[in-house]
Design a protein around this nucleic acid. Structure first.
Lengths: 194, 194
DNA sequence: CGCGACGTTGATTTGCCTCAACGATTGTGG
DNA sequence: CCACAATCGTTGAGGCAAATCAACGTCGCG
């Protein structure tokens, strides 16, 4: 297993000495998740942030009518976790599930706090990626308020060209906020209009 | 003008020495904004994070059909800014406008970076409030995907009981994502059903 | 092979929008 | 302090985007 992936990723935002990166790596836990297995289930308390080494995860919750809504995808080099549950250390309602066989490096909340104390630079790192994540959610929220389903679908295609063809269409629907049937019709109509 | 408000607020998350808080305060710029005046306009580059001392701001953007969509409200003790524009130092599409006469303390991006260098604890502070903000947007996004307009309205009432009665109803509509007319009808129907 | 998950298509319904008209409220200048 | 305009909230008629429900074909996988 190759930890250089995660170090390269972090090095884009902060610079680490060998000692620091070794220490960081010593806090991580490696885990393999088979396709359709769960990293976290609704009702559990989230105790880890996870960095995807290979494969892809999805975070979703299930509403009172039994419908899934996808909060986020985590392909290679992305962090994922249930932030709400993590911060409050209280049960969340997010499911995190592997879409294909996936490998992650997990950083426990406890180790994360240790890390902040010992290498404060990591406060900076997580601040920066949290800010970027925040921007993405703000953007997506505004898109949901102002765009039609058609527009949101097209935007999804251009924003995530790599994953659009590797996931079931019904999960795209659960992400952009329409029923699978309607997305199917959208595509049909769009193709007709060339 | 009383800076203790902002220091009290920050002290909830990190502890500061007198020297540190004095330094922090020295980086702030005080500003009064009259009702309906702008702190930031779409197309401008956002150069400050602003902390509301008194009054209330709203952040919104205007879609291609001319409709306003409210991203956030910033009552007393809240931070506001155009995170997208701030991070990228590129023009944003957010308007930040005073809903009533408002007083803010502004921290410029430049001073914020200085602050991080001189008092790294502030990385922690902003990481924490960014995380909380992220959680709120995630929650709101999922609500928009899974709740009806009626439910979103009721949730808004319970989540923001203080501001619900102090703002025009059309702005509530622009926040929860319905037209003002429809919100009016929702309320009428709900009152009938007791 | 046969089952179950997925995608498609059609008929129907519904939640929400559009447009228009009309009071109520606010605020502003004379 | 009043008159007027502007903004806001309400109500109704009609329309459209998207959901619902159901049927059916297809594909990947055990």
């Amino acid at each position: 297993m190759d930890q250089s992936v995660i170090i390269n990723n972090i090095s884009k935002h902060i610079s680490l000495t060998k000692t620091e990166s070794d220490y960081f790596i010593s806090l991580l836990e490696f885990k393999k998740i088979k396709s359709k297995q769960f990293l976290l289930k609704a009702g559990e308390v989230c105790k880890h942030s996870s960095f995807v080494i290979s494969g892809c995860l999805r975070g979703y919750s299930i509403d009172k009518n039994g419908f899934e809504h996808i909060l986020n995808f985590a392909p290679q080099n992305w962090w994922i976790g249930d932030m709400y549950s993590m911060i409050n250390q209280t049960p969340g309602n997010l499911n995190i599930e592997a879409m294909v066989d996936t490998e992650v490096l997990m950083l426990s909340k406890i180790n994360q706090e240790k890390l902040y104390v010992k290498v404060p630079k990591f406060e900076r790192f997580f601040r920066i990626i949290t800010e970027k994540s925040l921007i993405a959610y703000q953007q997506r929220l505004m898109d949901n308020l102002s765009l039609t389903a058609q527009e949101r679908y097209l935007k999804f295609c251009t924003t995530y060209p790599t994953i659009i063809n590797s996931i079931p269409q019904k999960q795209v629907a659960a992400y952009i906020g329409v029923t699978p049937e309607f997305l199917s019709k959208l595509k049909a109509k769009y193709l007709k209009g060339h």
